[in-house]
Design a protein around this nucleic acid. Structure first.
Lengths: 330, 330
DNA sequence: GTCGGAAATGTTTGCGTAAACATGTGTGCC
DNA sequence: GGCACACATGTTTACGCAAACATTTCCGAC
C-alpha cells in the first residue's frame, strides 16, 4: 500500500480511501491512485483488514461429510448465499462421528478466522463441543433437535413423513412398512416417529422397522427382509429406496403393481429410477439459504434466541405408488 | 494476549512463546501462563498471526457446484487432507459457467486470505481468469487440459473410456454407441475421443454420438434415441446411464440380454441400479489428496512446473453387460 | 483583501502477534 | 571471589490497514 501511495504521490490513507470507495477524494487523485494500483498489482491484504475490523467475513461449516446428497446440496446453497453477502465459507469435515473428532473440529474452528459457524451434525455430539468455540462466535445448527438451545434450521421431516404415509394409506394399503436410516440420525428418528404416529392414529398395525445406513446397498439388504405381506413401504431416503426397488425386482415383486414404494429427499436421479420414484421433496437450497440468513442476522444484530425454523416439504407422486389391489402378490 | 500476560504476571512475549510451544520458558512460568489462558478463555487471533507471518493456512477451492458426485467427493477429500495438514478450505462456487462469473470468483479469491487455489473448472474459462489472482498464490487445476500451463491432477479419463469400450468389444459386440456429456466439458470430450479412437483402431463403424448434460433425465432422453441396431452403449457417466436403463426398459429392451450398458464414475448407487451397472471406477478421493499434496508442495518449495498427474481408473464389471448374441432383439 | 468554512489530503495511532534485540539472573569455573 | 556464559524473560518494533484527528487548500461572502 505504501508503494502505491509513493507511486501515486499521495499518502497511504488516500490509497485506503480509494480502495474502499470512500467519498472525499477528488477525481484526478483517484485516477492516479487507481493507475498506481494497477501498475503495482496491488491487492488489499485481508488479514490486515480483519485485524483492523475484528471481522473476517468468513463463515465456518462443520459437517460429517459431503457424500450425502443432502449435505452437499445444503453446503452448496450455503456457499452461494454466503458469497452473495460477501462472505466466504470455510469447511471442516469431521471424519468419524466420535466425541473426540467433533471436539477437535470445533477447537480448530475456534482458532480459525470465522465470524459464525453452521453445524450440520447430530446434536448429541454437539453439546460437549460448542464450549470449544470462542464466545464471540455465533452458531446455527442444521438437522437436529437442538432447538431449545440453538437456532436451528431444518426441513420439516415429520410433515414430509406424514405426507408419505398418508398417501400410501389413501391408496388403500392396509398398513405401511418403514425402512429407517441409522438410529443415531435425528432425521431418521423423526421420520420413523412420524410414520409410527400416522399409523397409530389411523388405527393400523405398526410393522417392525427395517434399518439402513442411507446407502442404496443397505436399502437393498433391508428390502430383501420385507415380508410377502408388505404392499407399501416408506423408505427414509431415495438412495435406500433405490436399493429396495432392486431387492423387490430380484424377488419378482412388481413396483407399483405388487408393492408401492415412497422415498424421501427427491434427489435428481429419483425421477429416473425404475419406476420413477414417488418421494418427499426436500428443499436443501432453502435450508442453506436460511442458515446463512439466520447467521448473518445474529452477527449483525446479536444472538437471536433458540428456536427451530422449518422448511416445508411436499410429496412428489411418480410411478412407484399405486392403489392397493386387495392382496400382496396377484 | 495482554490480559493473559497481566494475569500471569509475565510479558506478552512470554505468552506468545507458550502459545507456540517454543523452548526457553521455565515449567513454572508456563503453567502460570496456561492457567491464565484457560481462565480468560484466550484464543490466538488468526488474523494477526496471518498478518505477522504472511501465511494464512488456507486453501481456496473454485468450482461450479457440488451437485455432481465427483465434485463433492473430490472436495470432501481435499478438505480432509487439507485439515490433516493444518489447512482450512475456503469454497467459492461459480454459478453459471460464464466468463464473468469465473473472473469474479477469481477476483474474490484473490482478495481472500488463501495461500493457494485449487480450480475445478473447465480450462477454456480459466485463461482469462487466473491473472486476477495475486502473484504469490499458487494454483492446481483439476479435470482439464491445462497441463501445459498449470499443474493438473486428473483421473485418467481416456484410459477409463478405453477399458469400457474394449470390454464391450471383447464381449463380441459389433460396435459401441456412445452418449457423451456436454460438449463444453473437457472430461466429456476426452471420454468421447477415447471411445472413437478405440473403435477406429478396431476397424469398427463409429455411430453418431448422443449428448446429455450429465443428468439422469438427459440420459433418459438420449437413451430413447438409441436405434434398435444398438447392442452396446458406453455412457459418459453413471447418472446418465441410469436414465438410459430407464429408456431401454420403457422400450421393452432388456439389459443386458438385448443391450449392454457401461457407465463412468462408479458412484455408490451404481451397484444398486437395475441391473447393477458395469462402470469405470474413478478414485475421487485420490484426486483430492494429490491436489492438496501438489499445492502444499508448491507453497513450501516454490512453483512446480506444469504437467499432468493422472490417477488410474479401472473397470468394475457388474450386471449390465453381457456377450453379444448375434442380433439386436431376439 | 480578509475571513470562515468546507472539502481534500496528510499524520498518528492501534488492531494482536512474534521476531529481533535487550536485559536480567543464576550457574559453574578458574 | 570474580568472571563468563547460558538461559529465562522483558522491550521494541513491524506486519497492512483504516479510524480519528490534524493540516492544508480553495472558495465565496463580506
Amino acid at each position: 500500500m505504501a508503494d502505491v501511495a509513493k507511486l501515486a504521490g499521495v499518502s497511504s490513507q488516500t490509497v485506503s480511501r480509494v480502495a474502499n470507495g470512500q467519498a472525499g477524494v477528488v477525481e484526478s487523485t483517484r485516477e492516479q491512485v487507481l493507475a498506481a494500483m494497477r501498475e503495482l498489482g496491488y491487492r488489499p491484504n485481508s488479514a490486515a483488514r480483519s485485524l483492523r475490523y475484528g471481522r473476517f467475513n468468513t463463515l465456518g461449516v462443520i459437517l460429517f461429510g459431503l457424500s450425502s446428497t443432502g449435505n452437499s446440496r445444503t453446503v452448496e446453497a450455503i456457499a452461494t448465499h454466503a458469497a452473495a453477502e460477501g462472505y466466504a465459507i470455510t469447511l471442516i469435515p469431521v471424519g468419524a462421528p466420535t466425541q473426540d473428532n467433533v471436539l477437535g473440529a470445533f477447537t480448530r474452528m475456534g482458532e480459525l478466522a470465522v465470524d459464525g459457524v453452521i453445524v450440520i451434525i447430530e446434536v448429541h455430539l454437539l453439546d460437549a463441543a460448542t464450549p470449544a468455540l470462542p464466545p464471540g462466535v455465533h452458531v446455527v445448527v442444521v438437522d437436529s433437535d437442538a432447538g431449545e438451545r440453538y437456532p436451528v434450521v431444518d426441513t420439516d421431516q415429520a410433515d414430509g413423513a406424514r405426507q408419505a404415509v398418508r398417501h400410501l394409506l389413501e391408496l388403500g394399503h392396509p398398513t405401511v412398512w418403514h425402512i429407517a436410516g441409522p438410529a443415531e440420525s435425528y432425521s431418521a428418528e423423526r421420520r420413523a416417529l412420524a410414520w409410527r404416529t400416522v399409523l397409530e392414529e389411523a388405527g393400523r398395525p405398526v410393522p417392525p422397522v427395517g434399518r439402513g445406513d442411507w446407502s442404496a446397498e443397505s436399502g437393498y439388504r433391508a428390502g430383501l427382509e420385507l415380508p410377502p405381506a408388505c404392499t407399501a413401504v416408506f423408505v427414509a431416503n431415495d438412495q435406500m429406496a433405490l436399493g429396495v426397488l432392486r431387492a423387490l425386482n430380484e424377488q419378482g415383486r412388481r413396483v407399483p403393481a405388487d408393492v408401492s414404494v415412497v422415498g424421501f429427499d427427491d434427489i435428481a436421479d429419483a425421477s429416473s429410477y425404475l419406476p420413477p420414484l414417488t418421494t418427499v421433496h426436500q428443499d436443501f437450497a432453502e435450508v442453506g439459504r436460511r442458515c446463512v440468513e439466520a447467521l448473518l442476522e445474529q452477527i449483525s444484530a446479536g444472538p437471536g434466541g433458540p428456536g427451530t425454523d422449518l422448511v416445508p416439504t411436499h410429496l412428489v407422486v411418480r410411478g412407484s405408488t399405486a392403489p392397493y389391489r386387495g392382496g400382496a402378490a396377484p
